[in-house]
Amino acid sequence: MNEKGNILFSGVGGQGILLASEITAYGLLSAGYDAKKSEVHGMAQRGGSVTAQLRYGKKVYSPLIEPGCVDIQMAFEMMEAVRYLPYLHKGSKVIVNTQRILPPSVATGKAVYPENVLDHLLARDIVVVPVDAFLLAREVGEVKTANVVMVGALSAFLPVDPAVFEGIIRTRVPERFREVNIQAFLAGRKVSQ
């Protein structure tokens, strides 16, 4: 397992990206790593593209990931998987929720949502892990757990025991949603294993 890493979370405001990045950070901290995470609030949260950057290792200085240095990208929307291409490198892993959310220009008929948008990644030897997070979340019984499904898929690539994540979900999630979130996590993890 890697002793340090850079994880980029990308998606659209309102998809639960910040919570997913928090759970991931807790997992890495519990496994004994130092970590820093950078978010942008304010104007950036009104339905626009949203990112969070999480870095972990023995000692982390900078909260920002350098271009070309993202090891794993968690993309909560297909087009948002491709928007940050200059941050990726050959062999980067992109875990992508295969959902399309139309930006305003597409919704109003002024632009077209690109077809086969993930080909941009595949053509550059980037490892794409597609996850139908909504379907899996619906199958476990709660569509709102799609972001936890994504964390499950990510967890298989992290130097953290899955029991640690289960423990975090157990302590962080209100009791009535606890079991469904654990199931969502496990369903996501299965995709990557």
Partner: peptide, 19 residues
């Protein structure tokens, strides 16, 4: 001194919007 970077792909923008 940096690594060579993949060029950005042109995509429809996703600016913030009123709810």
């Amino acid at each position: 001194s940096g690594p060579e970077l993949f060029p950005a792909v042109e995509l429809p923008n996703r600016p913030p919007n009123m709810c």
